[in-house]
């Protein structure tokens, strides 16, 4: 009835759904909780300009855990991975290209900016 816990290799098999063991969920869960409080704690320490990078790195790591394990992308098809990749690529495109404008506006030294 239920799929075996050990058939991690059957990526191409759409019929048989991969069942992630509960222990994985619990591991991810505790990591997420711990990282939440770690990031809250680190924010109270003055790291200068590094604070935002640390905070964002932790957030990206947490999000990756959710995407890979809770959303099953690690066990998903190549198409799912492609869609996730596309999303990230276009988001970065939007953020990076607009920031490109923001970062270079003052270079000309035109008043008002």
């Amino acid at each position: 009835m239920s799929a075996s816990h050990h058939n991690a290799a059957s990526h191409d098999n759409h019929e048989e759904h991969h069942v992630v063991p509960v222990s994985v969920y619990l591991g991810v869960f505790f990591a997420l909780i711990a990282l939440t409080w770690v990031t809250a704690w680190i924010s109270t320490i003055d790291l200068g300009p590094l604070n935002i990078y640390v905070a964002l790195s932790i957030a990206i790591f947490k999000a990756s855990l959710v995407v890979l394990f809770f959303m099953h992308v690690k066990y998903g098809t190549r198409l799912t991975k492609l869609i996730v990749g596309c999303g990230l690529f276009w988001l970065i495109l939007l953020l990076f290209i607009v920031m490109m404008d923001i970062w270079t506006r003052s270079w000309m030294g035109v008043p008002g900016r």
Binding site: T44, N51, I52, I58, F70
Partner: peptide, 26 residues
């Protein structure tokens, strides 16, 4: 889970800017 991920980013970006209170990010 997606909605959860959005919050995972909102939390540091909205709540955790410069909690040490020692100046701006730059």
């Amino acid at each position: 889970h997606f909605v959860d991920i959005v919050w995972i980013f909102l939390f540091p970006l909205l709540y955790l800017i410069d909690r040490s209170g020692k100046g701006g990010i730059h």
